[in-house]
Design a protein around this nucleic acid. Structure first.
Lengths: 152, 152
DNA sequence: ATTGAAATGTGGGAGCC
DNA sequence: GGCTCCCACATTTCAAT
């Protein structure tokens, strides 16, 4: 991970479909070594994939909700079981294990409040071992960034 | 936005560097109309860009913090001013305006706690109009998804 | 060992039907 | 929505530093 690698990562976070030629020019390399570095970054798991960024509103996902979950037990098994269950919920875009009371924080997307209610009833609350839930609704996203602040 | 459009969006969220040929086959179209749909989806702002997905740990961003911000005033001007200020903070990956007490929720990434402290002192707390802050630390990400649950 | 250059096969874009 | 041509790109091989 030298400076050129960081430049590659930064450029591809900004434009994931950039051609190797453009990328090579941007980082000051010829295409061949640039492509090789790209392969290496993928093999090493630095770059885990490529994704189209989509406007959730345009696809009908008008609602973003943050759900705080407290488990009845906070041991390893309980957390692992919850993690396996939450991985199967496509509406959960992010899920973080938090410090403190070892709460869990979810970012959930839904088409509307009815759909979110259905998610709560039929999905989240079906997971055993949940002590309580607290939902906080987002009015809108002010910032949604996909580029880590990589220094170059 | 018909079923094929949704298939295109879904496929490109899963693999943003997929070629138009592969995409066309996947959605059951020939390449030309597939490329035309792709252009339209971009012009319409459904697809807003493409991005490489990166492992934050591998780039040294080991810390994720959620910061709740309460403003002194919650009127339009105060919120707009905060939004302009927060857009200039590269460490802020997400920022949502919340319901209720019109709190603001930030997801911040940092290299370590020292760097996060510097962000708090030199960046966030320099923004005027903040009544109080509350930081919650993530131990780890259980789920980090980039694919919206688009039905096809 | 890592870069740069050249050749080949494959993909993308603009016209047409 | 599908087809064809042309150019540009990616990938592989080879030579050079």
């Amino acid at each position: 991970m030298d400076q050129i690698d960081r430049k590659i990562v930064r450029a591809l976070q900004q434009d994931g479909r950039m051609t190797v030629l453009d990328l090579a020019e941007k980082v000051g390399l010829s295409p061949t070594p640039c492509a090789r570095r790209l392969d290496r970054l993928r093999r090493d798991g630095v770059i885990t994939g490529y994704s189209a960024q989509v406007d959730p509103e345009k696809l009908g996902f008008g609602v973003t909700i943050f759900v705080s979950v407290e488990l009845e037990k906070q041991d390893r098994n309980a957390i692992d079981a919850f993690e396996r269950a939450i991985l199967r919920c496509d509406e959960v875009m992010e899920c973080y294990l938090m410090t403190g009371s070892r709460d869990i924080l979810l970012r959930v997307v839904a088409q509307d409040l009815t759909a979110f209610d259905a998610f709560l009833e039929n999905r989240l609350m079906q997971i055993p071992g949940i002590r309580n839930l607290r939902s906080n609704f987002a009015l809108r996203a002010m910032v949604k960034r996909d580029v880590l602040p990589v220094e170059t």
